[in-house]
Amino acid sequence: MQIYLPIAEMSINIFLLLLMGGGVGFLSGMFGVGGGFLMTPLLIFVGIPPAVAVATEANQITAASVSGALAHGRRGGIDYKMGFVLIIGGAVGSYFGSMLFTILKATGQVDLMISLAYVLFLGAIGGMMFVESVRSILRNRRGDNPPVGRRPRTWVDALPLKMRFRASKMYVSVLLPLAIGGLVGVLAAIMGVGGGFIMVPAMIYLLNMPIKVVIGTSLFQITFVTAAVTFLHSVNTQTVDVMLALILLIGAVIGAQIGARFGIKLKGEQLRILLAILVLAVCGKMAVDLVSMPDEIYSVSQTGKIH
């Protein structure tokens, strides 16, 4: 059954969209990741205009993260003070990201920027995840235990403007969470991702936050920042397709349930290697598309208001 998407202005099979939502939802349930970094490229692969894919995916992530954030909030799994600092950074970052996005859209370079950003980030993240999980598997084989305890003092502790975060039992500079939030905001605006794949490791390894508040605080921030991105893209480029976002969400909700049950049966390292391979595959496909000769070098679009 075909469905006409009002903002993307194209007709697409609704079951394909549900399947994509379900598939990515399945993976995100299994791996415990947001899935934006898989969904946006998939949408582009099936022909949704890249700008619409990014903006709509931000809207979908708002929906996908809110119930998780609420659940963590009820359990006391959110450091609200830290969350607000990350949101302020995220708001500033998404504002600049959206500005960049608007300018590049007007000059016809937004698709290229989205692809380049994906190749770069997916390549880096996938590569690191792959190496890390292979290492930890080897370490387990040898029977070594990873070192435990608090990390040693680093440059992080030398930063000024320290603030106390009671829920995390931390006393760190606000500059670092502001910067992390800002980076995530930029990525959300230009790539249509929640940014959890950057924020969670940064919170654990850089900020040294306790694990029990990391996921909740990250979801809390993502809900607000992707909402801000949705708003900015709606105003600047009119690229948020609510209909598309809702269809994807339905698939994702169902898929995530099934994925979560599968995920329990697999070991952590195996999961991470699988995810790393998946990420690298998407990255590879995008890289090949960038360097291979296109079938048609001309493309036509309506003139926007901005020249």
């Binding site: 929906a63 708003f231 105003v235 809702l246 969400l249 909700v253």
Partner: peptide, 21 residues
């Protein structure tokens, strides 16, 4: 567009909450 953005956010928040529920 601004109003649309706000509605898109509200729809997403509600749909996400409903899905979780």
């Amino acid at each position: 567009p601004a109003f649309y953005g706000i509605v898109a956010i509200i729809v997403a928040l509600f749909a996400g909450w409903l899905g979780g529920f």
